[in-house]
Write a protein that binds this DNA or RNA. Structure first.
Length: 257
DNA sequence: TAGGCCATCTGGTCCT
DNA sequence: AGGACCAGATGGCCTA
């Protein structure tokens, strides 16, 4: 299967037809011309230049590869590189599909750098939500003993958060109570959402993202103004939780875009 | 028109 | 030796 025939390029400027003409492109582009100019002895062009630049020197002792062989080699290398980049772009598209930004024909496709930055911030936000859920679970089950017993049964669950973090729980609790959630409901939502996690990531509306994607790009955790509090949902907003040290540290590295 | 984004080509380096 | 990976260079397309 030739990847060149199945190009996934999203831009019309991706000239697949160059595949058939890559050698011609090579022999006519500026880099090649510069290279040839440096080794030029006369003003001949075209075939003579191709022969010289493909290794036609008289003094060389190594057996010179045939012009066609060089051309075939370049075609192969270029094709592999194109396939590699196409695979990379496919992976990038796959990442875009699971990112919480508005999908649709009217929405401009995220650039590669934006996709990566958004993905990073999205992961940070989900991690923050997970930490908050762990704290809530610890609060519900009345202390570290119960949580530790559960942690023993489920090693992926870490012990309860430090008391410094617990001090914020009444606020978070009352906030979520205000919108009708209960900790048990929160746990239920968490478990159900985790079960669906692998192939159905939370959508933007599910997570309450109503700010433009630039909000996530610039400021992953300052979501207070744009975040909606859903009943039973882990809330990463700055009202409901302190910034984890890891994410706050990473936040200092936040992007300029 | 400048700047951003992208695809492609290319040569170098590293790995198997 | 061949392939994967990477970064630089180049040119095209699009938008503000």
């Amino acid at each position: 299967m030739d990847s060149d025939s199945g190009s996934v390029c999203s831009r019309s400027s991706s000239p697949d037809l160059v595949v058939d003409d890559s050698a011609g492109s090579f022999f006519s582009n500026k880099m090649f011309q510069t290279y040839c100019r440096e080794n030029r002895e006369d003003n001949e062009a075209g075939q003579g230049r191709m022969q010289r630049c493909s290794g036609g020197g008289k003094t060389k002792t190594r057996p010179e590869p045939n012009k066609d062989e060089v051309q075939d080699l370049r075609l192969k290398v270029n094709s592999r590189e194109r396939k590699r980049m196409h695979d990379l772009n496919q992976a990038m598209d796959g990442l875009r599909e699971v990112m919480p930004y508005a999908h649709g024909p009217s929405v401009r496709k995220l650039s590669k750098i934006s996709t990566l930055l958004l993905a990073r911030n999205y992961i940070l936000m989900l991690s923050s939500s997970l930490e908050e859920m762990k704290k809530l679970v610890g609060d519900v089950y009345g202390g570290s003993a119960a949580v530790q017993s559960r942690t023993a049964a489920h090693p992926t669950i870490t012990p309860a958060a430090p008391t410094a973090h617990l001090s914020l729980h009444p606020l978070a609790h009352s906030l979520h109570s205000l919108v009708g959630s209960t900790p048990s409901a929160a746990l239920q939502h968490h478990t159900t959402s985790t079960a669906a996690a692998p192939h159905s990531p939370p959508s933007a509306s599910f997570l309450g993202f109503h700010a433009p994607v630039q909000g996530l790009l610039k400021d992953p955790l300052h979501l207070t103004s744009s975040y909606r509090h859903f009943p039973g949902m882990p809330c990463p907003c700055s009202l409901c939780q302190p910034l984890p040290t890891t994410t706050s540290t990473l936040h200092n590295l936040s992007m300029t875009k």
